[in-house]
Design a protein around this nucleic acid. Sequence first.
DNA 1: ATGGTTGTTACACAA
Length: 268
Amino acid sequence: MKLRVATWNINSVRIRTDQVKRFAEEVQPDVICLQEIKCQDGEFPADSFLEMGFKHMRVKGQKGWHGVATVSRLPIEDAPLLDLCREKHARVVSAKVAGVEIHNFYIPAGGDIPDRTVNPKFDHKLDYYERLTKAMAARDRKDPILLSGDFNIAPGEFDVWNHRHMLKVVSHTPIEIETAEKLRASLDFTDLVRAAVPDPLKLFSWWSYRAQDFRASNRGLRLDHLWASPGLLPAANKDGKVSAFVHDTAREWDKPSDHAPVVVDLDV
DNA sequence: ATGGTTGTTACACAA
């Protein structure tokens, strides 16, 4: 069975419900992992998602900030829960769809100063990664696990508009790159989008609102990821090819999110 | 080198 999974930092699900609808019509995902829904559970526009055909949903919201939700056309079963946030923010929601464990993350951005001894937000970001790395290292490689969401790290040289410049900027500092690699190595995850669009092609999923013309300046970062465990990899890898892409035209829409959706096709 | 924008909130903050 084909399963198309998308992840999208929507930056307020309430003001962009229509954009999710447009995306669902254009791309026809079976599952959408949303981040930064910026609402409480009871404020999530569940009726709109039901109308779109997403009859199954798991919402983890909070007032004002953060918040994640996974919506699905197929039934959702319980998945192992992850309790990783020392600040008790709503930053992860887990679901099992068609046998695939889908963990949907909004990992802390980390503030401006890339030094955990002076910046508690940066410390929180690294702490979140360290806890997640520990949790994944305890898992069985054969389990079909998809890590999905806004990781707030651009891990590769070609995941940023300027590698040399960005090494000093939170999201692409050496300690963050190292921290993301430790998570990847914990269960030998595969970065599915990079498998589909190999280096040295530059690929971004986020562009700042501050650019007048994001296409012209193209100062983007690839912060949004879909990582497969070894047990899930055969479902994503058909004859040595992975089908995954960034739906970057969504960044051109009126009043867009600063993130574009990222999509992968699985055969489960 | 600096500032540029957005969403939620309540009279800043986080990103």
